[in-house]
Design a protein around this nucleic acid. Structure first.
Lengths: 186, 186
DNA sequence: AACGTATGTGTGACTCAATCACATGTCAAC
DNA sequence: GTTGACATGTGATTGAGTCACACATACGTT
């Protein structure tokens, strides 16, 4: 029973995901943003091409409208974002202040450093193999996924190769939904 | 800059960890325990050999003493655990009720099913390769880690092969700390 | 053109889980 | 015995989210 390889593998995968997620969250928190939603919001704002509306942001984060209002209130009070006019009279846009942008870049760098460090245990060839396998599993996850927060929150969307076809998540999302803009995603 | 393979790999790893962690948490929540701390506590109680004290439990979960008291209060109010005498006049033990045990087993099964499902995209040989690489990265993470919650929370400690030497986390912890009992871990 | 519905934002009241500061009881060591 | 460390528990507070609801704007229908 306990020597079923699949059970072992599944269990180790679970511990691994938790460990990497913990470690990354800790690195981001140490870089100055303890709240995961706030960190994800700042990161998202860094990667939106245009300034998103509150509603776009809330979908990325998987929050209710009022939750998003509160979040943006907090970020604005901290001087990290400002509200501006939206494309339409109902909506308002959210933009990073210079300080918010600096914070977001710091968080992003801390995350990347933490993840690169984790991969330090492997040789380049092994990392490449791991990357391939992870990409395949990821594609399956995206294909199955329904609802919830954006999977690529906190990602650096240039590093993953979203636009050059190297990002497995973006590719799987494109296969599932058709053309994938940054602002609507699994 | 964005075609550095390491940056791509690191970024995909980050998204992957988040995706698997999200998915697992959702599966556990759907099985009836929305709060991650509560779920981790039930799972831990399922795997402790003897009945742990509140303090042992709080270390596993990475909570403050008062946080652990509140958590056990909630679980007890829900009829999932009971408090008993501890080995010592100061401490009290926490034990699962039959209902708590059933809940814990249900959560654990939901987690395992979710993780096995994620691995379904790979062939047995690929899973084995992935398992090996993950184990190596995991060992590095354990070696670096200091503080925080238990990495193996929610794990099925028989499935991972903790006692047969197959669990990379347990092995790395043993190398770091010496003999590893279930109740003191990375 | 006017009406009714949908959408986006915001507010008030509340919940839930954690924290800190502190109190109490117990053990161990000197 | 006294002193100090430790385990548990309590009161007050915080933080981040929810729901129910209000309000303004946009859009589609007739």
């Amino acid at each position: 029973m306990s020597d079923e390889p699949l059970d072992h593998q599944a269990n180790v995968l679970g511990a691994f995901a938790l460990a990497v997620a913990d470690r990354t969250a800790a690195a981001v928190a140490a870089a100055g943003e303890a709240n995961p939603s706030s960190a994800a919001a700042l990161s998202a704002l860094l990667h939106f091409l245009d300034h998103p509306t509150l509603d776009q942001l809330r979908r990325v984060l998987g929050l209710t409208p009022s939750g998003a209002v509160r979040l943006v209130d907090r970020l604005a009070a901290a001087g990290l974002v400002t509200r501006g006019p939206g494309g339409d009279g109902r909506s308002r846009s959210v933009a990073l202040t210079p300080e918010g942008r600096a914070t977001a870049e710091r968080l992003s760098a801390a995350r990347a450093a933490s993840l690169r460090g984790a991969l330090g245990a492997l040789s380049p060839a092994e990392r490449s193999t791991l990357d391939d396998l992870i990409g395949r599993v990821m594609a399956g996850i995206v294909a199955e996924k329904e609802g919830g927060a954006w999977l690529c929150r906190l990602c650096d969307l240039t590093a993953c190769g979203r636009d050059t076809g190297a990002c497995p998540t973006a590719n799987a999302a494109a296969a599932k939904y058709g053309a994938a803009a940054i602002r609507r995603d699994p």
